[in-house]
Simulated scan of single mutants.
Amino acid sequence: MSETASTPVLSKSCGECGMCCKVLHISELAKPAGQWCGVFRKGSGCGDYEARPQACRGFHCLWLTSEKLDAAWRPDKAGFLMYPDRDGKRLNVVVDPGKPASWRREPYYSRLKAMSQRAYDGYELLICIGDRRVVMFPTEDVDLGVLNPDHKLVSGYVERDGAQVPFAMVLSDVEEMVT
């Protein structure tokens, strides 16, 4: 099979993982986030691999595409999967709802904190536990609580009294207050 410019070259395989088949919402299958896909078969993966929708075909978690993440970071071992969006400006950490504190365990938490250093350069690290959202900064974690998944989030730093202070907010809330 030839690789295209948009298809990453993968040196790892999903194996028996399937975490994306549980935690992600797949609209083409009417599959809600946090529930196993009806065609996923534990131990063998997708039960309809050849006919899987484009959302599944095109998805590659960060563990698959990064040489920097070892076997401990395989999503089914870690209890969460990671993927970038917003043209690489946001790292989403989507947590298995059956293991909601998995991202806080070591070695994950300290490494995620190190990854969050990029917030100083305009990047975001977002923890998603069901509909709950936590924005991770190097100095603190801002828990925004349970949100409508369609609401847009913005985070970054503002200067206050000569210091850089992190902020995170839900844009829809701001729009509702203005109108």
Rank of each mutant, 00 (worst) to 15 (best):
156 G>P: 06
15 G>T: 10
74 R>A: 14
65 T>Y: 01
114 A>Y: 03
168 A>D: 00
65 T>W: 01
155 S>L: 09
161 D>K: 10
143 D>M: 08
152 K>F: 07
136 M>D: 01
40 F>H: 10
35 Q>S: 14
152 K>Y: 11
56 C>G: 05
110 S>D: 11
116 S>M: 03
132 R>Q: 14
95 V>H: 02
137 F>H: 13
99 K>E: 11
174 V>C: 00
66 S>R: 12
169 M>S: 14
30 A>V: 12
118 R>M: 12
139 T>M: 05
155 S>W: 03
20 C>R: 02
34 G>L: 13
166 P>R: 01
35 Q>C: 09
45 G>Y: 01
174 V>W: 03
126 L>W: 13
156 G>Y: 02
127 I>N: 00
105 R>K: 08
116 S>E: 00
141 D>N: 09
53 P>E: 05
6 S>H: 13
7 T>H: 11
3 E>D: 15
128 C>Y: 07
84 P>V: 01
60 H>R: 09
94 V>S: 02
144 L>S: 00
165 V>E: 12
109 Y>V: 05
9 V>Q: 13
40 F>Q: 06
99 K>T: 08
125 L>G: 05
77 K>A: 13
45 G>T: 06
121 D>V: 01
150 D>Y: 14
98 G>H: 11
134 V>N: 08
120 Y>H: 11
8 P>M: 13
107 P>I: 00
126 L>K: 11
97 P>A: 06
165 V>K: 08
88 G>A: 10
67 E>I: 04
72 A>T: 09
53 P>C: 13
129 I>N: 05
110 S>W: 05
68 K>N: 07
46 C>T: 08
170 V>S: 04
70 D>P: 02
87 D>R: 06
58 G>E: 15
123 Y>V: 12
5 A>R: 15
77 K>M: 06
19 M>L: 15
2 S>K: 15
172 S>K: 09
167 F>L: 11
12 K>F: 03
10 L>V: 14
129 I>F: 02
130 G>T: 08
123 Y>A: 15
140 E>T: 00
50 E>G: 03
156 G>D: 07
135 V>W: 00
51 A>T: 11
91 L>E: 04
174 V>L: 06
90 R>H: 03
100 P>S: 03
19 M>G: 08
100 P>E: 05
82 M>C: 13
21 C>Y: 13
39 V>R: 08
123 Y>Q: 14
73 W>C: 09
74 R>Q: 15
126 L>F: 04
139 T>F: 10
103 W>Q: 01
32 P>E: 12
72 A>Y: 00
70 D>S: 10
20 C>E: 01
49 Y>C: 03
6 S>N: 14
144 L>H: 02
119 A>L: 02
114 A>E: 04
46 C>G: 08
1 M>T: 15
96 D>A: 09
75 P>F: 02
19 M>H: 04
58 G>I: 08
59 F>L: 03
173 D>Q: 14
84 P>T: 09
146 V>G: 03
117 Q>R: 12
159 E>V: 15
29 L>S: 07
154 V>W: 06
158 V>G: 04
48 D>H: 06
124 E>Q: 15
141 D>G: 07
33 A>V: 11
68 K>E: 11
1 M>R: 14
55 A>H: 01
53 P>F: 10
